[in-house]
Nucleic acid binder design. Structure first.
Lengths: 154, 154
DNA sequence: ATTGATAGTCAATTAAATTGACTATTTGTC
DNA sequence: GACAAATAGTCAATTTAATTGACTATCAAT
């Protein structure tokens, strides 16, 4: 089973690979949402809804995760509130803080999105096996770690 | 070497991992470019310059790689031409086609960017080893393949 | 020759994100 | 317990990026 064809995989820049790999998820999630009528979610909204599926979060956390200005994050949440996906509540423990949660519609969208993501995960697992997948996750996590190391003022 | 701590790595959504991993490269390349005075490259311009470092390309190819409308790609190239990174030539073999190439400045920026990318690659290799890295590349490539399968009309 | 497809442009609009200036609330210090 | 500093978010204006729609030029295939 020796294979001496030089894998082109080694030559493609990792950022490009990451870009296109991410697109697979994005396109699938978007398609699944649109198919169920959730066709008014702006690009980063996908990300916000996905993150909130794990539980409520203060706006400030969304800002950090999204890596955009707080104004941009605020506007994004505005749009999603307006379209019925999110709700804001003032955190009683810290009345500066806004807690953002999914509405029922938002939860339904999050479920749809999660299903689409997991379908791809399953397909990927079937094609690649658990070990390589875990290695990929480890590499990605380490890459994120390297990013943190480089910009300590994060 | 048995390890029964449940890795949180298995729980983080892959799209989020991809997003942040890609950011590591983006931020490092951006910082390296800015440090050398290339501070007027718009977001996707990084990607275009990186792609052209491998050789000239027709605009239509950039459009497909970038997955934006041809108008958006045209405007992006406009901006990069205006700022001295790119040149357009009409392809003599097909006079509809615009061939885009790097200028000297563009090549210098591409080199800077490539060095920043490779520095991260090297760090990643040192931390993770060749095998896991290859596995990660394989997984990413397969993910892209899955994307192609899902949207045949690509 | 003519039809259809491909490659790109021009103009106008919409969407997304940024900058700058501000308010309210909390935290930490003396 | 007053007061400075930091944190969390808003409002308004602007800039940047991307889209839609309508169009021209060139090439490919009958």
């Amino acid at each position: 089973m020796s294979d001496d064809t030089p894998s082109p995989l080694l030559e493609v820049a990792l950022p490009a690979l990451l870009r296109h790999a991410r697109h697979t998820y994005g396109a699938a999630m978007r398609a699944a949402l649109v198919a169920r009528g959730y066709d008014d979610i702006p690009g980063n909204g996908l990300y916000v809804i996905g993150a909130l599926a794990l539980g409520e979060a203060p706006l400030s956390q969304i800002i950090r995760e999204l890596r955009v200005s707080k104004q941009a994050a605020g506007q994004l949440v505005d749009a999603l509130v307006l379209r019925g996906y999110l709700e804001r509540q003032t955190d009683p423990d810290d009345r500066r803080r806004l807690t953002v949660t999914l509405t029922e519609r938002g939860q339904a969208a999050a479920d749809t999105q999660k299903a689409a993501r997991e379908a791809i995960d399953a397909e990927l697992l079937a094609r690649m096996g658990a070990e390589k997948l875990l290695h990929a996750r480890e590499v990605l996590a380490e890459l994120i770690e390297i990013g943190r190391d480089q910009v300590p003022a994060d």
